[in-house]
Simulated assay, not measured.
Amino acid sequence: MTRKNQHVVPHDDKWAVRGAGNSKVTKQFDTQREAIEHARGIATNQQSEVLVHNKQVKFASGTATETTHFLQRDDLEPAIRMSGPAR
């Protein structure tokens, strides 16, 4: 089995899980928390990691970039509790 890190990304005013390198999302959710939980299950099964992107977009020289938070499997529970209200 290929180990693909799972990305939690903003998608059409919702949240989605996307496997690393995939062009399509795996599944879409109303909240970031739901997406993290789903990504966590996949990452645990594949022995990979979860990367959580946020919705804040910064513009530098006309290029949009997203901030990414890297979470190891062992860090997911505290990260979910500390993330505040999911949007």
Rank of each mutant, 00 (worst) to 15 (best):
K27C: 04
E37L: 10
T63M: 08
Q28R: 14
P85N: 13
E49L: 03
D30F: 05
V8S: 05
Q6D: 03
A16L: 02
V8Q: 09
A64L: 10
N5Q: 07
T63K: 15
G19V: 09
N45A: 01
Q56R: 14
Q47M: 06
V50F: 02
G21N: 10
A43D: 03
H53K: 15
T26L: 06
A39Q: 10
H11R: 07
Q72D: 06
F59M: 11
H11E: 07
R40N: 13
D12M: 03
R33L: 05
A43Q: 01
K4F: 10
Q28E: 14
P78H: 08
E77W: 00
Q46L: 04
T65R: 10
E66D: 08
W15D: 01
E77Y: 02
A20R: 11
W15G: 00
K4W: 08
K58T: 15
H38E: 12
R33H: 12
R18V: 14
G21D: 03
F29G: 01
S61H: 15
Q72R: 10
V17N: 08
R3V: 05
R87K: 14
G21H: 11
M1K: 14
L76G: 03
R81Y: 04
T31F: 06
A86W: 08
S61Y: 14
S23E: 10
A16N: 04
A60H: 15
R81W: 11
D12R: 13
A79Q: 04
V8M: 03
A35T: 14
Q56Y: 13
V25C: 10
E49D: 14
A39T: 13
Q6F: 00
M82K: 05
V57P: 11
H53M: 05
G84Y: 04
P10R: 06
V50K: 01
M1A: 08
N5H: 10
V8D: 06
D13I: 02
G62N: 13
G19R: 12
I42P: 02
Q28M: 07
A43L: 04
A64I: 07
E34T: 11
E37V: 13
E49C: 07
T67I: 15
H11I: 09
R3T: 13
H11M: 00
G19C: 01
E77P: 02
F70S: 08
A39G: 15
T65F: 09
K24G: 04
P10Y: 03
E66Y: 15
E66K: 15
I42A: 00
H11T: 11
F59N: 13
S23G: 11
W15M: 00
V17P: 12
A35W: 12
L51K: 12
N45C: 00
D13S: 11
A39V: 09
A60N: 13
L51C: 10
V25D: 06
H38L: 01
K24R: 15
P78K: 06
S83W: 00
Q32L: 08
A79T: 02
D75L: 02
V17T: 15
A35E: 03
K14E: 03
H7R: 12
A86F: 05
R73Y: 03
N54V: 13
P10Q: 07
Q56V: 15
V8R: 01
S83E: 05
A86G: 14
D13V: 02
V17Q: 08
G84A: 06
A64P: 15
T67K: 12
H11K: 10
E49P: 00
S48R: 00
D13F: 09
A79H: 01
K14T: 09
K55F: 11
T63S: 14
